[in-house]
Design a protein around this nucleic acid. Structure first.
Lengths: 248, 248
DNA sequence: CGAACCCTTGATACGCTTCAACAAGAGTGG
DNA sequence: CCACTCTTGTTGAAGCGTATCAAGGGTTCG
């Protein structure tokens, strides 16, 4: 029944797109800057984290944490991608949000002295860092600058979630898709392209729609001449039109 | 055209439910504890805020801040209620979330050196406190315990928003209403009651449904024998059934 | 090859919105 | 005082948007 050892195996869109092997040494330094602000200048206060960070290397499908588990770490993903959602026995995985590249997976649960409220699984080969919360808290007392970094990261998350709830409440599926495409497009000038780095059904899950409607919406936008969909690469033919669709 | 000076005047459900006058002195001390943790013990680190807090007294309909405005304060509401959403010229007010009693209105925007992303208006006579962000940031450096309080509050907000997005993505209107009723019910034992303290259309807006469907859902639940709706008070007849409906 | 996974397309069903009409309450002004 | 207006909640009919169910084709892997 299970083909690759786990039901929600990623099966990357095109296997040519495998992440570079990047075989890092166990003690390789971690670049904290992108996790916080992208501001790497004067990051002296982040040195203290080097001693605390616990590295984990996961292959896709492995559990990062479960929602019942008590949150005792701040969890970040350095490379690869992690999915947050609910793991239910019947269905493969109920994805809610996917976290890519260097980004925090869970920065909030540990402060509340309770469980992670969500399950998290690796959607690809992933390199994680976990910071034990008590130690971070201790470190905080001597490093006000670190506290400020954490506050900023947390504030950014609140802003992001606020935007997400707004979109879910007031925008229909087409608008949400347009927003997503605008956020993920790259390669400016003339050739604007959106490479789909996840299964389409995972993208659909994040947009809170079914895979069927995602397929239909893409075709619909293609008919309008806004997009050109070729497998797992979407070319944006009329960016202004797409942005108009995405707008409030 | 305008009847009460502003279109989104609250017109409280029952005018008998007016908030007590509570005419406070300008220098009356503010109880910071409920804003942070409810833990008032050892709140020495919060004393520093007393000197910083700027009090504002607003009557209903007045603007707390607008979404284009640069966020330079941490904003909390001490008493009364404030609505967050988008003020659009045509429609009265697009409510997204309402904040009651002692609670933070915006704790995140100031850290990001940008605008508040939302508009906020007083939904009733409200007493606010604003903390200038630069001063708070300064205070932080000497008071690590304050930083921890802020982190905790922010983390709680992230958790709350996570739950909200989950509900919006995976629960239908009836489930969301059930959740809302369970969260707002009071008076345990025998008589479980949910007093509606806002206009029904505002409650509907927070549930991301139209007033019409809210009305229909309430009647539907009444027909099932779960509720008894009498104007602005809802009596829960079958709490277990309601909780089952609310569950995942 | 068949099995298992993916995406797509079509037909149908359901949930919720939209639009329109109505009754009730509250403030206003003749 | 009453008529008038404005707001609110309610109910019904129609329509849109999206989910659900079912079927088929493409790809990968054993």
């Amino acid at each position: 029944m299970l083909r690759r050892g786990c039901t929600f195996a990623a099966m990357l869109p095109r296997s040519s797109e495998l992440p570079p092997l990047h075989r890092v040494r166990a003690e390789s330094a971690i670049d904290w800057a992108p996790l916080f602000d992208g501001d790497s200048s004067g990051a002296a206060e982040l040195r203290g984290l080097d001693a605390l960070g616990i590295e984990r290397q996961l292959s896709h499908g492995e559990l990062v944490f479960s929602r019942r588990q008590r949150a005792e770490h701040l969890v970040a993903v350095i490379s690869g991608s992690v999915g947050l959602g609910l793991a239910r026995d019947g269905s493969p995985f109920h994805l809610q949000r996917s976290v890519h590249g260097p980004q925090w997976v869970d920065l909030s649960s540990a402060w509340l002295d309770g469980p992670y409220g969500q399950d998290a699984v690796a959607l690809s080969k992933a390199r994680l860092v976990e910071l034990p919360w008590p130690a971070v808290r201790e470190l905080l007392h001597g490093e006000p600058a670190l506290a400020e970094r954490l506050l900023l990261s947390l504030a950014r998350q609140v802003q992001g979630l606020n935007g997400l709830t707004h979109d879910l409440m007031h925008k229909d599926a087409e608008r949400r898709l347009a927003v997503w495409l605008c956020q993920h497009c790259q390669g400016s000038d003339a050739e604007v392209i959106v490479p789909l780095k996840e299964r389409k059904r995972d993208i659909a899950a994040q947009l809170a729609i079914t895979p069927e409607t995602l397929s239909r919406l893409l075709r619909q936008l293609q008919r309008k001449g806004v997009l050109a969909v070729r497998g797992y690469t979407v070319q944006v033919l009329d960016l202004p039109a797409l942005q108009t669709l995405a707008q409030d």
